[in-house]
């Protein structure tokens, strides 16, 4: 069964007005399926429609057209019931009144009819201590940890995390990744949005890239790299630079360029040609002291797929 299924979803925001009425199409005819049990990354630049998609998944907003199904339930009719099985870390949230962090967690546990121990959840996200203070006084990162604890209440079947790493320190980001993996191993589907590809790559099985309200790609990161025709860089540290090998490597298929600098050689080539390049230098008279390879930077990949914001 699919955990999330969007069919032909369009969301248009209308601003009524006699003189300054206008409309913005945040999502345009979106089809997306997230399978049960996977960790799914939802990528896109600012303003691509990521948060709007999440608003529709959770019933914060209703789609202008199309259907949204979450855990087999139609969100249009089962908006409240379906949230019993979802854990949410939303974007743009604010504290409920003057409640403390702990009271937020307790409220979530009780609202879900769960029997979690609030202490355990607070411990798990690493925010013991501040939990006794009102959330209005929290820093962004501490609030994110708290919201993760709220999301984990009741062992949800689906976790929806909107930009979960925002404001987290490196330890917090690591905790977040660890918890995402743990929850996934427990059997939960994880859907999370981000504009930072490194974080997505670290945990996700598949990713979707959203741009200007439309899906531009859905695949694994490796497959995206391949289909984007990414180039790699190979840097070799040699005892000397063998002229003959350099000429040979320049002529290899898939090699885009070669640069020598003293005793080091930098080769730009397709991912597939890397092995041949390294082998050629290894077989040459020169001794290979160090090899460094890098794949297409994720930033380049991101840039290649996306162009801008919703029109």
């Amino acid at each position: 069964m699919a955990a999330i299924e969007l069919r032909g979803v369009t969301k248009r925001y209308e601003r009524a007005g006699l003189f300054r009425g206008r409309s913005v199409t945040a999502l345009h005819d979106l089809d997306l399926t997230v399978e049960s049990g996977e960790i799914f990354g939802f990528l896109g630049p600012n303003g691509a429609g990521k948060s709007t998609t999440i608003d529709l998944l959770l019933g914060y907003a209703a789609p202008t057209a199309g259907s949204v199904t979450v855990l087999g339930e139609d969100v249009a009719t089962e908006r409240t019931a379906v949230r019993e099985r979802i854990g949410v870390l939303p974007d743009g949230y604010g504290a409920v009144g003057e409640r403390t962090g702990r009271e937020h967690v307790e409220f979530a546990i009780e609202a879900k009819g769960a029997d979690d121990d609030p202490d355990e959840l607070i411990e798990r996200v690493g925010m013991r201590g501040p939990d006794e203070y009102p959330v209005t006084q929290y820093s962004k990162g501490m609030a994110q940890r708290l919201m993760l604890a709220v999301a984990l209440a009741g062992d949800p079947d689906l976790l929806v995390l909107d930009e979960p790493s925002t404001g987290l320190d490196p330890n917090g980001a690591r905790t977040m990744r660890r918890i995402v993996r743990e929850e996934n191993e427990r059997g939960a589907t994880v859907f999370f949005s981000s504009h930072i590809m490194e974080q997505v790559e670290a945990v996700c099985d598949r990713v979707a890239i959203l741009d200007g309200g439309e899906l531009v790609a859905v695949d694994t990161i490796d497959a995206l790299r391949d289909s984007a025709g990414g180039t790699s860089t190979v840097t070799l540290e040699l005892s000397s630079v063998p002229e003959e090998t350099v000429r040979y490597v320049r002529a290899l298929e898939g090699v885009a360029g070669l640069k020598t600098d003293g005793s080091s050689v930098v080769i730009g080539c397709e991912d597939g040609a890397k092995a041949a390049v390294i082998a050629a230098f290894h077989d040459s008279p020169a001794t290979v002291r160090d090899v460094e390879t890098s794949e297409t930077s994720l930033e380049d990949l991101f840039e290649r797929y996306t162009r801008g914001v919703a029109q």
Binding site: L58, P90, A111, M147
Partner: peptide, 11 residues
Amino acid sequence: NGAFKIVFGLP
């Protein structure tokens, strides 16, 4: 203030 993002994230 966004408190409903939390409340309506719950059932």
